[in-house]
Design a protein around this nucleic acid. Structure first.
Lengths: 251, 251
DNA sequence: AATTCGAATATTAGATCACAATTTATGATC
DNA sequence: GATCATAAATTGTGATCTAATATTCGAATT
């Protein structure tokens, strides 16, 4: 019987009364209470996709915690997770940075994205339902609206949602996490594709994907995926976005 | 299992127990101080490979911290990392468990292990040096010694070292982490291959790998890798180690 | 002026505390 | 003896807190 608990039942202490969160209503539906860590994790992930973090940039846990209105702990854990997923990187200094890109690394990322996402799409094709197709269709429309209005965040978010809704339908617990890691590694660069004057964000391949699902055409869907990935990569290469060797985010 | 930690429990609280690490100067310019988190992470990883964790088993952070003679923090961070790498899994309960295996999952793991490790080996083949080959040779001998003496931990540790020394030589920062994740997911099951009466741990494929490196034969090395992976998987399947559908470790 | 040194500051890793939510154990009632 | 309510112990999460380390920046010396 370890007696360590002071048993200070004093409710009024409010030693921690910081935010005085509203009485946490007991989750009306089924969704469990979303932990702060989870929220931070999602926000950072989105941020990586949306250009909030520049390659080479060092990130400060404290600044992030402040910006996200929370303490260090949730940020620490979220960042740690993202480090494990290769979205961030720790220097020998112990400071955390957004990894840089090299031509070889991009080639590898593209190669394996094609492989893994192609396979996931094929599996999804086998499981396709009308609901899935409808959802993808809706997402694609929303994305194209975003393109029209040049809403970067909207477009990238929809694009990610589109792809992962598809991959999730593969029901592969092996593929999806691997793909997610690859996306995170490309994330900060994907953003730059938006600085392009000649828009590469047409939905040609997305439409092709939806068609392939309707026709349950494995070859077609794999082809569409591969081209989708490759097109983006080619643009990034052509724009010489990262021929730089060292990490230099002077801006 | 109750008391191992009492000894360490030494009330050193207020003083933080200061390891009294050697006066950490600039540490001679080589290995930096090995953080506790890192140590815990390595121990857990090894534990997963060595049968210390059974599939379906729930792990308690506090118990682990006690067993590893440290506080919650390093354990939390190490576990979080391993969750991100799919070595552990969080239930909606928020409790952490060792993921279960299914036939489909195994098939996928084997398929992608073959792909990724095969490719990494081919790349390593292009970078092969005499030093690498010597090192692999030594590791293989040490492993076979372990087999002779039925030292499970030794063998599995050497085997892992053998493979990752090879993959590391690919110099691919994309492949290696993905492969590591796949290994961790298979880890708790790989252990069971040792309960086999008919030893499958001969070094046929390892020798083939070393030969291929000497001959710089890409096809041969990929072939050896694929067979190495496949052989283990076949044994696991034949032993019906996980035909169970749900995660039910009633015992 | 440039380099070096050292105080001031910031940041990380680890420990501990507090709390809510479970899970487990216990006791009362039928 | 079985069912259910309540109490006790565990557990994950979040928040501080401290010591160690790294970084910055301003003198003082060369």
């Amino acid at each position: 019987m370890t007696k360590l608990s002071k048993a200070n039942n004093s409710k009024s202490t409010t030693l921690r009364a910081t935010k005085t969160k509203s009485p946490v209503k007991k989750s009306a539906g089924k969704t469990r209470a979303p932990s702060i860590q989870e929220r931070v994790y999602d926000e950072l992930k989105l941020g990586l996709m949306v250009g909030a973090f520049l390659p080479g940039q060092t990130v400060s846990l404290r600044k992030l915690a402040e910006k996200l209105n929370t303490s260090l702990m949730p940020v620490r854990e979220a960042i740690n997770r993202l480090i494990a997923e290769r979205a961030f990187e720790v220097l020998p200094n112990r400071s955390v940075i957004v990894p840089d890109m090299s031509r070889e690394k991009l080639d590898e990322l593209v190669h394996w994205r094609s492989m893994l996402e192609g396979e996931a799409a094929v599996k999804a094709c086998a499981n396709a339902t009308p609901e899935l197709i409808d959802r993808l269709h809706a997402l694609n429309i929303e994305m194209m609206d975003g393109v029209q209005e040049r809403k970067v965040r909207r477009v990238l978010s929809c694009n990610k949602e589109f792809h992962f809704t598809l991959y999730q339908a593969s029901r592969s617990t092996v593929l999806v996490p691997m793909i997610e890691s690859l996306w995170l590694q490309m994330g900060p660069f994907t953003f730059f594709s938006f600085l392009s004057p000649d828009l590469i964000w047409n939905s040609t391949f997305h439409i092709q994907i939806i068609e392939a699902l309707q026709e349950r055409d494995s070859d077609k869907i794999r082809d569409a995926i591969v081209h989708d990935v490759q097109t983006l990569a080619e643009y990034l290469v052509d724009s010489h976005m990262f021929d730089n060797v060292g990490p230099r985010p002077i801006a």
